Amino acid sequence: MELTPIELERYSRQMQLPGFGEKGQKQLKASTALVTGVGGLGGTVALYLAVAGIGKLILVRGGELRRDDLNRQILMTDDWVGKPRVFKAKETLSKINPDVEIEAVYDYVTPENVDELVQQADIALDCAFDFAERDLLNAACVRWGRPMVEAAMSGMDAYLTTIIPGETPCLSCIFPEKPDWDRWGFGVLGAVSGTLACLSALEAIKVLTGLGQPLTGELLTMELNSATFAKRRPYHDPNCPVCGHFHQQNLTATITRNQVAKTVYV
C-alpha cells in the first residue's frame, strides 16, 4: 500500500524512527483497529492511532455524552451533550486526519455483534467500562486469533497488557474472578485516562509494525499518585475456559513429535 505525498509529509517525523520508517507507516495504513468504549480512554486511544496514520478505525460505543464526561473525553464538545458520543468522535477524528477511514458503531459490544466486529480488525483495543464487554471481546479475540490491547483504570491506578492468543495469558487468565466494577463509583482525572490511552495506542502501533517490544505476557501496573510503574508476569492458566485449548493443542503436538522421534531413532 503506497503513501500519498500528503501522507509522506504528515508522517515524516515518525518515519525517522529507527525500526519504523516508511515500511512501518505502510503497515499502519494497511491496518484496521477496533476500539471499544470510546470515552476518556478509548477516545484518546483513537486520536493517537488516527494521527499516527492507522488505515481504518472501527469505533464502538453506545450511549450519549454527559457533561461530566467532558473532563476527559477530548474528542467531545459541550454542544454535543445528550447526543451519541461515537458520532462526535468520528466527526472530530475525520477533521484531524481525513485520510483515516472511520466507522462509527452506535452500540455496545454484545454477543450478537462481537464476532463480526473482531473479524474486521487486525487488532482490538479494549477500553470498555465493564467486564461484561471486556470478557466478550477477549473471548472473540481468542476465537479469531486477533491480538488485543487490554487497558483499564480506576481512580489513580491503571493497568495495561497486550494479549496474543495462543502465546500469552488472556483476560480470563488474568482476572478469573471479576472485581466489582461501578462505572460511576470512582473519581477520574483526564490526565490519568490520557496517560493510559497514549501507552495503549503505542502498544497497538508496536504490535502492528514490529516497532519495539510490546507488553506481551507482561502486565504493566501504574499507581499514578506516586508515578510508580511495575511489570508483572500474570499466570497463564492451562485450564482457562477461554484460551486453555491452546495449551492442550501444544501438549498434543509435543506428544506427537516425541512419538515420531522415538519411531525414527529406535
Rank of each mutant, 00 (worst) to 15 (best):
S200F: 05
F87S: 00
D107T: 04
V142S: 02
A191Q: 12
T110A: 06
R67Y: 09
D180L: 13
G145A: 03
D122H: 15
R134I: 13
R66D: 15
K83L: 13
I74Y: 13
F129A: 15
V81N: 05
F186H: 14
V81Y: 10
D157L: 07
N138V: 06
D99N: 12
I102S: 04
Y106T: 00
C173K: 04
G155M: 07
P176A: 11
N138M: 03
L171S: 09
E116Q: 10
V81G: 08
R143P: 08
D126Q: 11
E133S: 15
V149C: 02
L93S: 07
Q119F: 05
S193H: 06
I163P: 00
A89F: 07
R183N: 10
L196P: 06
G155Q: 09
K95Y: 01
C170Q: 03
T77C: 03
V86P: 03
L117T: 06
V118S: 05
E103R: 00
R85I: 01
V109A: 02
R72D: 05
E101W: 00
D107P: 00
G82N: 11
T77I: 12
L202H: 10
R61H: 12
E150T: 14
P84A: 03
L65C: 04
R146C: 06
D157W: 05
D68V: 13
F131W: 15
G187L: 10
R134Y: 07
G82H: 11
K90V: 01
G185S: 08
A128N: 11
C173H: 08
G63P: 00
Q120T: 09
D68E: 15
S172H: 11
C141A: 06
A132C: 00
K95R: 14
V109P: 01
E133H: 13
R66F: 06
P98Q: 07
A151H: 11
E167I: 03
P98W: 09
I96W: 08
A204G: 15
G166M: 07
